[in-house]
Computed example of a mutant assay.
Amino acid sequence: MKKLLFIFCFLICANAFSQILSSSVEKKTIALGEVNHIVITINNLKNEKVSAAPENELLPFHFEEVKDSISQNPDIYYRRIEFAVFEEGKFTIPELEFKVGEKVLKTIPYEIDVINTAQKTDQIKDIMNNKNVKLEATDYWELYKFYILAVIAAIALIISIVMFVKYGRKSKDSPVVATNQTLKELDSLKKKKYVESGNYRSFYVELIDISRNFIAKQYRLPADVLLTDDLIDLMKKNNTISQENERVVEDVFLRGDLVKFAKTFPDQQTMEKDFADIRDFVKRSSKDLEFENLRKDV
């Protein structure tokens, strides 16, 4: 009898001075997505630290934790976890471990039965009837502005490409560019002062080279490869260059050939006149091209 009394007193004292873990689940059967909860309580902590899985990570995979709240004071640890399951079937909440100081406490496992309460005959009703909303121009703009801007950008790009191809690409050998370039070359020749120094041979060599290149670019004639007589004959047959300009080219080119072969020695006045005539010919060339274009149109 004394032994039984001793054992009974020992158990009472052990329970009085040890931590007690308790747990409970609200429902063992729940519907899909229904919120359930489990509560874990540890009493008689005596300022011992409780270690467990962090918030929202205590329950296993299938249990979607909605809310995990923890409170603790020197004697009691309280944890309430709200959860839901979104699959049908039976799922188990296993033993959950809580470490109090150096001691490990475990809850009992729970089996949760998840059922689908929806029936095929159930009618789904809208909370509210659909409403017709009248859209303003600004609403349509907000809806479709990116498509509209993309179309506008594509059209602008196409127009830009067409304009560039048709008007924007000014060829380097276009009439205006060829004329301006040749006039610059003639100005450079004049600055060399061949006329003033009496260097007639260098003057005519460069003057005729400039003129030949100009005729080749402006009139599309092979002036840079033909002999003078052949070029003059081609100009007269081609009828692209006016008679006035033909005479200038013929006179200057023939005189230049004579100078190159030392068969004539022009004076300064003649050289200046030939330079001025070639310069005027270059400036007048645009009229030849205008007349040629009109003739082609006719």
Rank of each mutant, 00 (worst) to 15 (best):
N132E: 15
F10S: 13
S286P: 00
L258I: 04
N239Q: 09
I76A: 07
L207Q: 04
L32S: 08
K217R: 10
S285Y: 00
I241R: 00
K145P: 09
I155E: 12
N213F: 09
F203L: 14
T92P: 00
V151L: 15
V205Q: 08
K273R: 08
N180Y: 10
K237L: 03
T182V: 05
N130A: 14
L157A: 14
C13R: 05
S197M: 10
S22G: 10
K28I: 08
H62A: 12
P266H: 01
V205Y: 13
N44T: 07
L221M: 07
F253D: 02
K120L: 14
F91G: 01
S286E: 05
V39Y: 08
V205T: 12
A84D: 10
K67S: 15
L32K: 10
E82Y: 15
A84E: 13
I40G: 02
P109T: 03
E48S: 15
S242T: 01
S71Q: 15
V50F: 03
S51W: 11
Q268M: 08
K90W: 11
Y219E: 00
V25R: 05
K99S: 11
L183S: 05
G101D: 09
R201S: 11
S18D: 06
G168T: 03
H62S: 11
V205S: 13
Q218L: 01
K46W: 10
N56V: 07
Y78C: 08
L45F: 09
A153W: 08
A52Q: 12
Y78P: 04
Y194E: 11
E57G: 08
T121I: 12
W141N: 08
I159P: 07
S188Q: 15
W141F: 12
I159A: 14
E136H: 13
K236M: 01
H37W: 13
N43W: 08
K192G: 11
E57R: 12
Y110W: 07
T117G: 01
D288N: 06
A223Y: 00
D297M: 07
E87R: 10
K170S: 07
I30H: 03
D267G: 12
N239M: 05
K273L: 11
V252C: 01
K2E: 09
